[in-house]
Amino acid sequence: MKKLVTISLFIFWAAVTAILTAGLIQYQNTKTRAPQALSNQTVDPLISALDQTLVLDAMEISRHNSAKDCWLLIDNKVYDVTASIASHPGGAQMIISFCGREASEAFNTKGGGGESHSQKARTMLADYYLGDLGGKIER
C-alpha cells in the first residue's frame, strides 16, 4: 500500500510541476508580447493577472470569440463554455460559430433545428455560468 501512495505522489508532483512550469513559460511569452499590461505591477504575475474586475458587457463578451476562449450570451446570462466545446454532442463547430455572441435563439432551437436543449443540458450549462449581462466578476 505504501508503494501505491509513493507512485501516486510521484505522478502528482511530476504532473503539477510540469503544468505549472509550462503555464509560467506560456505566461511569460504572452507578457513579452504585451509588456505594457503589467508594467506597474510588482506582485507575482500569475496571480495579479487574475486579480482584475471585469464588467460583463457586450464589448467584453465579444473579446471571447474563439474556440480557445469562448463566451456565450444566453437569455442575458454570460457563460464561459470553452471547456465544454470539445464535448458538445452537437459538434464543436456548432458552438464555435457563436463564441462571443448572443446565442439565446441558437440554444433554444438547437441551432434552428426547432427543439430546445434538454433540462440536463441546461444544468450542464449552469456549470459554466459567469454572471449576468452588465454584472461584474472577479478575474
Binding site: F12, I19, T82
Partner: peptide, 27 residues
C-alpha cells in the same frame, strides 16, 4: 491516491484550452 489523481485528471480538460488555463486551475 484517488484524491491525488482527482485534480490531475480534471486538469487535462484545461490543458486542451491552454497550459496557462491548466496552471491557473491548479493554483
Amino acid at each position: 491516491s484517488l484524491l491525488l489523481f482527482h485534480p490531475l485528471l480534471l486538469a487535462v480538460a484545461y490543458l486542451q484550452i491552454s497550459t496557462l488555463a491548466a496552471a491557473r486551475f491548479l493554483l
